[in-house]
Amino acid sequence: MIQVFTFYLFAALLIASGAFTIFARNPVHSVLWLILAFFNAAGLMVLVGAEFIAMLLVIVYVGAVAVLFLFVVMMLDIDFAELRAGFIKNVPLGLLLAVVFVCELIFGIGAYRAGKIELSDAPLNPGREDASNIQAVGELLYTKYIFLFEMAGIILLVAMVGAIVLTNRKRSGVKPQVVADQVARRPEDATRNVQPEIGKGVEL
C-alpha cells in the first residue's frame, strides 16, 4: 500500500518537475525544477531497491553537477526579448528533434506490442545473491567489467586533462601569493616595539 502510494507520489512529482523544467520562464527556476526531478528519480530508484545508485545520483548530479549548473545560470544576465528572438531561429532544429523523439516513441511502443525481450534469469555473479548492493556492484566492476571500468576512468582522465589544458592560460603581470613566504613571516619581521619619549613621535 505505502509502496504504491510512494511510487505514484515520486512518479507524478518527477513528471511534473520535468515538465516545469521546460516550461519555466526563468532559467534559474528551470534548474531548480531539474534538481527536484533528479531527487524524485533517486526516490524511485530507492523504491526498486537500487539504493546505491540512488545515493550516487543525489551525490553526483544534485550535489555537484547541478550546483555548478545553478552557479553558471545564476550569473547569466538574461534578456527575455533576446530569448524570444532566439526561439524563432531555433524552431526548425526543435521540430526536427521533436520528430526524432516521436519516431522513437513509436518504435518503442511497437516493439513493446511485438512482445517483450527474453532476459536471462541467470545471476551475473552466482553464489552472491545475499550480498548487499554495494558489494555486488563492486565485485562485478572489479572483476567482470574491469576493462570497461578502467576505460571509463581513462576517458574521464583525458577529459579532465583536456579541460585543464584548454582553460589554463598564462597571464602576465599577476603577482601570485607565495604562501611559504607568508607562513614563514614572523611578528619580528613586521613589527617593532618602541617606547618613544613623550612628544617626540616615532621615526618610521
Binding site: 546505491f52 550516487l56 551525490i59 550535489g63 548492493n133 554495494i134
Partner: peptide, 15 residues
C-alpha cells in the same frame, strides 16, 4: 546499508 552515502548526499544538498 548506505548510511554514510546518505549522509554525504544529504549534506551536499545543504548548499
Amino acid at each position: 546499508n548506505v548510511g554514510l552515502l546518505y549522509i554525504l548526499a544529504i549534506s551536499s544538498l545543504g548548499v
